[in-house]
Computed example of a mutant assay.
Amino acid sequence: MSLFKTSPISFEMLDRSETPSRRYEAGETIVSTGDEAKEMFLVRSGRVEIRVGDKAIEEIGAHGIFGEMALIDHSKRSADAVATEPTEIIPVDERLFVVLVQDTPYFALDVMRVLAERLRAMNEKLAE
């Protein structure tokens, strides 16, 4: 079971047929704790589990994002991301992220909403 609710925000605007993507098989690690972070990711298809240590804290499906925190603050990855089924992701580097924020203000607001949702869920979990 996931710590976080599945976000109702969809980032499918990033999913275009010409956009480069990466494919992972079930069980493959996409990013690991401590990795340098140069991009965030959109899940085009499949599912990605976010893990801290041996605990699954969230599962992200199609048109959800992950990895945005490290891209924003230039820190190393704070969690592992593992494909739980065959998965295709779209990387979003900082250059594209900045263009999206400048050209589409609601994109930035949606990313902030995802971050806020995850922070609130963590606060609720800590209060239990």
Rank of each mutant, 00 (worst) to 15 (best):
S78Y: 08
V111L: 09
L96G: 03
D80G: 01
E94V: 08
V111Q: 09
H74N: 12
D35N: 08
S32V: 00
M1H: 15
I50Y: 04
A116G: 07
A81P: 07
S2L: 03
V99W: 14
I65M: 12
M69G: 04
S17D: 10
D73G: 01
A127D: 08
V99S: 15
E59M: 13
L71R: 09
S45F: 00
R120M: 14
E28S: 11
A26G: 09
G27E: 02
E68R: 02
E85F: 08
E94Y: 13
K55L: 11
E88I: 02
G53L: 04
F107A: 04
L119R: 03
V111Y: 12
P86C: 00
E18A: 15
D54H: 13
T29N: 00
S45W: 00
P8N: 09
F4W: 13
E128F: 07
T84Y: 09
A56M: 10
I50P: 02
A83D: 08
M112R: 08
S7P: 06
A121T: 02
S78F: 10
S2E: 10
I72D: 04
H63D: 15
G34S: 05
F66H: 03
T33C: 11
E85W: 13
V99D: 15
G34N: 08
E85A: 14
V52Y: 06
T29Q: 03
F11Q: 03
I57H: 03
S32D: 01
H74K: 14
E25T: 12
F11G: 05
A62I: 01
V101L: 15
F66L: 01
Y24E: 03
L119N: 05
G64S: 14
S7V: 07
F107Q: 09
I89M: 11
P8K: 03
